[in-house]
């Protein structure tokens, strides 16, 4: 079971969180004309890398904040966690 550092609460066990998928996906702006292909990419297509992955976790049984977690998908090593709106270099 992973041990995830929530930037709001501290280190907590994985069972307090819900997984939220790729954190690098950006929703197209409202009222913007976009092609089927672009929309399709946003709704359905996700990369599933082996190695570093920036992903969303929702601290659902804690502070209810969505956070971003940089995790290695093969070793589960967590490098860093970020608040939802924190800028990631």
């Amino acid at each position: 079971m992973l041990y995830i550092f929530c930037p709001h609460c501290g280190s907590r066990s994985q069972n307090e969180f819900a997984y939220g998928g790729d954190a690098t996906v950006k929703r197209p702006e409202l009222n913007k004309e976009i092609s089927d292909q672009e929309w399709d990419n946003f709704v359905y297509l996700r990369k599933s890398p082996r190695g570093k992955h920036l992903e969303l976790w929702h601290h659902i049984s804690g502070c209810r904040q969505w956070i971003k977690v940089e995790r290695d998908t093969s070793t589960h090593e967590i490098f860093k966690t970020y608040k939802a709106t924190e800028l990631i270099e």
Binding site: Q65, W66, A84
Partner: peptide
Amino acid sequence: VLSHLEYYLQLVWP
């Protein structure tokens, strides 16, 4: 629904 609303408020339209 609550998680859904929180997702949009915290991540998409902060």
